[in-house]
Amino acid sequence: MHSAYNCTAVDIYPTHVISHTLTGLHGHVIKLPMIFPFKPGQVAGLTLNDTIPVRIYSIAGSDFKNWIEFLFDVKSQGVLTPKLAELKAGDKIFMTKPFGTFAADEKPAYWIATGTGVAPFKIMADAGLHVNKHLIHGVGKSKNFYFRKYFEETFGENYIKCCSREISKDCFKGRVTDYIGQLPTLPAGINYYLCGSAEMVIDTRDLLISKGVSFENIIAEIYF
């Protein structure tokens, strides 16, 4: 989830970077001290000073005590992400209190994401909510299956990797919508959680509805 808004309309709090690691071809993970309580699936705003609009990111990981992590990729035309990509351990950063209600429960469900949209599902898995879940993750290049090893270990065969721009071992060749489209049936009465761009969410939602899933079982979070 990424959104820009005016810094003056939101409270931001100073903190610092504990670590900054690279993942995949384009992914960055920054770890910050956990200065506020949060619920898995929530987002928080990040910025570097009060002149750069705050952007919202899903919390992607935590030990639920000392630290939280955010996953992002660099938007070349963006104002914030090129600067976030330069952060080092110890650098100052500002964040908002976590907020939002995109939260799964313990019931069986499908979690469907593209790109960095996998972030909320990572923290939900950290919280132990992965049991009875299928995770379908779509990316262009196979190196951008962020947290791949973790998800393979956590979800086993319920982790479905869709790679649209190259053929890769253990991956479905195509988009998440191609994968879902070729499934003969989909379980009824369970929830389908979507996170990604507006286009991905709308295409996937339309597809699920056309395959008999009630819109009331579809819960979406959109990058904006």
Partner: peptide
């Protein structure tokens, strides 16, 4: 041009952003 919000009832949403 288009919209990012993805409301279920909206035609503009279908265009994407």
């Amino acid at each position: 041009v288009g919209c990012k919000m993805g409301c279920l009832f909206c035609m503009t949403a279908k265009q994407g952003f």
